[in-house]
């Protein structure tokens, strides 16, 4: 177990193993998203209440799931980095943050666009959208804090602490915003919650969610590899690698 963790912590080992894993995740992401998109856009039946505008669900919900999962993933990587001093974990956390912010933005944008036909306005202080907006600020904070330090190591550790503080706060923020919303907007309905969804509607959604997760894993592996090259550029094995390929 310990040997495994330390092996995983070695950048070279991670670089090699991720090279083998990466194609599978890219293939899975491409397949799942392609099938999910075609199914969701063209074959799933229109919603009886919202008509075809409900097809936004197939990008909104996966993006929203991913936005929250990435923050948790980032915080887990931060814990691994702070406790075991495994540098690869910090590199992964560093590349996860911008993708998480992008996913949060997608969820916000698609939610706002969806709001126009559903609520008749671009922005409603809907509990879900408000939580997403706060999550976006949390991502900005982590990204900005990492960049603010002159030394990379301080920036990494500061961003790790903030990610951990943030992940403790996310459920608190979420529940308080939900509570606030029910207090102020008692009788309106949330766009994504409905009593039951027929199978032909949620199958494509499931595919899209899995596809988005695969995309996230593949992209994180790819960018962590780049980050390894950047930070370890003086190491023997990286120089050998450059010499072999050049």
């Amino acid at each position: 177990m310990w040997a495994f963790i330390h092996k995983l912590g070695s950048p070279k080992w991670f670089y090699d193993i991720s090279e083998r894993l990466q194609p599978w995740f890219w293939a899975a992401a491409a397949m799942l998203i392609l099938v999910g998109s075609v199914w969701g856009l063209a074959f799933a039946p229109a919603d009886y209440q919202q008509g075809n505008s409900f097809r936004i669900i197939y990008v909104h919900v996966p993006a929203a799931f991913l936005a929250q999962s990435i923050f948790v993933g980032m915080a887990l990587a931060a814990v691994v980095f702070m406790v075991w001093k495994i540098k690869v974990a910090d590199m992964a956390a560093a590349v996860m943050a911008p993708l998480g912010a992008a996913m949060t933005f997608i969820a916000l944008f698609s939610g706002a666009v969806w709001g126009l036909p559903t609520w008749g306005t671009w922005w409603m202080w809907d509990a879900r959208l408000t939580s997403m907006l706060i999550l976006l600020f949390l991502y900005f904070g982590v990204i900005a804090l990492r960049g603010a330090f002159a030394s990379r190591d301080s920036g990494s550790r500061a961003a790790s602490v903030l990610a951990m503080v943030g992940v403790v706060n996310i459920p608190i923020i979420k529940y308080s915003v939900d509570w606030w919303y029910t207090l102020h907007q008692p009788a309106s309905f949330t766009i994504t919650s409905r009593p039951s969804m027929p199978a032909e509607m949620w199958w494509p959604l499931l595919l899209m969610v899995l596809g988005f997760y695969s995309f996230f894993i593949a992209l994180t592996l790819m960018r962590t590899r780049s980050e390894i090259l950047r930070r370890e550029s003086n190491k023997r094995w990286v120089r050998d690698l450059a010499r072999e390929e050049g």
């Binding site: 706060i134 600020f137 900005f140 904070g141 330090f149 903030l162 923020i173 308080s176 915003v177």
Partner: peptide, 29 residues
């Protein structure tokens, strides 16, 4: 927490509000 994270930075003021304000929301509510 935010003040401790930004105390070493020369221009931490704006960053401090970005870090801290989202975490203040439950208390405000």
């Amino acid at each position: 927490i935010g003040a401790a994270l930004t105390v070493g930075l020369s221009r931490g003021g704006v960053l401090l509000s970005l870090l801290v304000l989202p975490l203040y929301i439950p208390v405000l509510i």
